[in-house]
Design a protein around this nucleic acid. Structure first.
Lengths: 206, 206
DNA sequence: TAGTACAACAAACGATCGCTTGTTAGGAGG
DNA sequence: CCTCCTAACAAGCGATCGTTTGTTGTACTA
């Protein structure tokens, strides 16, 4: 529904001008773009779609972002930042036990991924597929910064020798991220899901 | 490179007419479309791209398919069929042990997913995201037929009571399918990867 | 050899795409 | 009061989109 019907942008949007700090409209654009990119994909989303969502004319977007591509990069960066912050906080609140710390990270990860956050779906590496290489590398670099977090958590795990830590991490992240394709809210809380998945791996390895 | 430079379609394509059974050109279209869809996405692929790849004018595609959407459905169906056939064959050649049968299925699954097959990337459920609902349901239905295979394999597994078979299957398929986002050919064979991943789950549970 | 079906070409349709340009309303600061 | 800056509007650019229509060369068939 949003505000499809209104032919001309309502003055309400206008009034916001310099009402607060300033980034308000830019943030609106980021969120609208994230929602669209997540549900319809980058190519499936037009500048006009996003403009309509925030109540603005298409051309006006180019005051805030120099190109559609720059908007994508900004959305991706914001998404990575939000998830990274959530995980960092959760881990810092956890105890010293390596498994507990990994579990806390997995819980925060899934909560961000499956929760209300509109940015997180854009953060998954699968989203990266299909972009040309200068852009693609930029996104992957942003994402790798986050994934490095899990590398260090897994490295501190007391695993039996012979277990590839890399394979373990990739398998675990695969299980977690894959929930995006089948999870339906309500059935089970994301944090519970995360704990159960860790359990699947933990039992045989500790 | 392909045949970008040739302005007019070379007569070579013409000669193929009724050379064999007949489906030859249609199959070419399916393969070209699959490659494009896999690398650039559905929205990122134009009818003109596909036409150029097979050496045909854009309008000519509509002799074989009534719409771009129908082409997508056909590509998806073909992909599911190919992977399903490979897995079915592998399992039938495996022994009676449930773990062996699951391992055989996982190996075939990954070989199809990461191998030369251009259809398989299109088959993953993540590809389904972003389509509207009549189309989306069609694709999911095709895909579910394949996934049912894994349901029955997991159900016959001797798992300790208390382990959710559904969660186990989703986690495993997640690990396997996620390889698409990070696997680079050459390092390790897909089948080896599949075995090692199963091993991650197997040890503690049997 | 005439007729028919096939598989493609050639050209264009209207719609939509990302983006550019020129303009304007309204606060902020001298 | 005047100026400047901000954040938008209004309009349209050329390119490309999926698709349609009419035509044509070729191969089978009677």
């Amino acid at each position: 529904m949003t505000n499809r019907g209104t032919r001309t942008a309502e003055p309400e949007a206008r009034r916001k001008t310099t009402a607060r700090g300033g980034d308000s409209r830019r943030q609106d654009l980021l969120e609208a773009a994230a929602r669209r990119f997540a549900s319809r994909g980058y190519e499936g989303t037009s500048i006009r779609d996003i403009a309509r969502d925030v109540g603005m004319l298409p051309g006006s977007i180019y005051y805030h972002f120099t190109s559609k591509e720059e908007l994508l990069v900004a959305v991706h960066k914001e998404g990575v930042l939000q998830v990274m912050e959530a995980v960092r906080k959760a881990v810092s609140k956890a105890g010293d036990d390596p498994w507990d710390r990994l579990t806390a990270a997995a819980e925060a990860h899934l909560e961000a991924l499956l929760g209300k956050n509109e940015f997180s779906p854009v953060v998954t590496p699968q989203f990266t597929r299909g972009f040309e290489d200068p852009l693609r590398s930029t996104l992957i670099a942003q994402r790798d910064e986050y994934e490095a977090f899990f590398v260090s958590l897994v490295n501190k795990l007391p695993l039996p020798s012979g277990t590839s830590r890399q394979l373990f991490r990739l398998a675990l992240l695969g299980s977690l991220n894959w929930t995006l394709t089948w999870y339906r809210p309500g059935r089970k809380k994301p944090a519970t899901l995360a704990r159960q998945m860790i359990g699947l791996y933990r039992k045989p390895l500790e």
